[in-house]
């Protein structure tokens, strides 16, 4: 099993919700951001194009950060997720330099001044100190919400399918641009997407084998505009639907 993510660049709208969701999920200090969006605006061949790349730790199969860590604080789990043990990290920043994707954050004191420097911590921050403590002086990064995955799987849930076992950014995305699943399973949602839509990774030349893939393409061109049944019924909210009684009366004559 190797957890991976596929990000659909045709859908990403640069809304930054994934970043905000991560900040909430992990009580991130003010100036720390685990996932980021890269704004790419090109003019290749006179054809302007605007793309947003959501990036986060690629959880590389052959991760340079694991190798350079002098204390084995950064390790790779059997499911492919690269995790940092904050109690082992000495804060040498070697991994920050060595990560070709620049996806590691060293948490220095100045990056954690509190949301409102000079004021008392907010209630949310105070709770965060207990619920998800961050150690100033260590390096941190996206961990694919490993705590959600572990807690969810313990309950028998499937990451990528069940919300409670899926990374927070994947859940929150309005465009549903992110898909999460098992890369080792050739029939999983992510593997199918990568195969069908020619998924690619960033900087494959490094040979790190990232677990975050991207797919791109065009919008539109769909053959059928027929709505599937679940869309026609109003999906999970149907039981709450209710029509204005006046309107009902007016339709009665015609049905």
């Amino acid at each position: 099993m190797r957890w991976g993510m596929v990000i659909d660049l045709t859908k990403c709208t640069r809304c930054h919700a994934c970043v905000a969701a991560c900040r909430i999920e992990h009580f991130l200090p003010l100036h720390v951001t685990w996932p980021r969006l890269l704004a790419l605006e090109t003019d290749a061949g006179g054809k302007p194009e605007l793309t947003t790349f959501p990036v986060r730790c690629n959880q590389c199969k052959d991760a340079p950060c694991v190798k350079v860590c002098p204390t084995e604080a950064t390790t790779q789990r059997p499911d492919g997720i690269v995790v940092i043990d904050p109690n082992k990290c000495i804060g040498c920043r070697y991994c920050v330099i060595a990560c070709p994707y620049q996806n590691r954050n060293f948490l220095s004191k100045e990056k954690d001044p509190g949301y409102f420097p000079g004021y008392e911590l907010t209630g949310f921050e105070k709770k965060g100190k207990k619920l998800y403590p961050h150690q100033v002086g260590t390096t941190e990064k996206c961990n694919f919400c490993v705590e959600r995955i572990d807690a969810g799987m313990e309950k028998g849930l499937i990451p990528g399918k069940d919300r409670d076992a899926t990374p927070a950014c994947v859940n929150i995305c309005q465009a549903r641009a992110m898909t999460f699943g098992n890369l080792d399973d050739p029939d999983s949602n992510v593997s199918v997407l990568i195969r069908d839509r020619k998924g690619f990774t960033l900087q494959p030349e490094y040979g790190t084998e990232p677990s975050v893939y991207y797919v791109d393409g065009r919008i539109g061109g769909k053959e059928s505009n027929k709505a599937p049944l679940h869309a026609q019924t109003g999906s999970n909210m149907q039981h709450l639907s209710s029509v204005d009684s006046d309107a009902k009366k007016r339709f009665d004559g015609l049905a």
Partner: peptide, 27 residues
């Protein structure tokens, strides 16, 4: 009584999604 988490409500017409503005209401 202290907010520790905000996310979209999956049982709503927006199916559990939200944007950065809504999430940042925590601040």
């Amino acid at each position: 009584g202290v907010i520790v988490h905000i996310e979209g409500n999956p049982d709503s017409l927006t199916r559990g999604t939200m944007c950065a503005k809504g999430l940042s209401t925590i601040q």
